[in-house]
Amino acid sequence: MNKLPSHKKAAIVLTALIVLLLLISLCSIALVKARAGKQALVAEIYQNGILIKTIPLYLVTENQTFNVTGENGAENIIEIRPGSIAVISASCPDKICVHQGFRSDSLLPITCLPNRLVIKLRTANPSDASAVDALTY
């Protein structure tokens, strides 16, 4: 072991570090996936880090669309369906948020970085049910 040149030792340490990082990542992906089962979901829409809208998706009965506008003409059209949500149109060039499609699990937030829009899905709390009146559109 001591006869190895220092760059080979460094390579071994780095490989171990990379493998460790990979394992931690894969485990946390599995963990997040396991926790994001089919549950009553609430969508939270954030713009510039501020919560601008909360929608209990499990209470949605018919498809609806609405616009979220931001600075510099940023615009995202969001469609909600019973139990799922998607960005169906965006003013940004890459449209990654649109390609993320309809989401019905809390695994990954829908993100439109150019327009600083994040839609997080979380499981419903008992307090969300009391918000029904405010959200019957």
């Binding site: 990979l22 880090g49 695994l107 994040v118």
Partner: peptide
């Protein structure tokens, strides 16, 4: 930077996916 710009801790959920893809 994404975290600083959006200030939503939820974007950090991408981290494990990004590390795997980076490898």
């Amino acid at each position: 930077v994404a975290f600083l710009l959006t200030s939503v801790a939820g974007v950090l959920v991408y981290l494990p996916f990004l590390i795997v893809s980076a490898c």
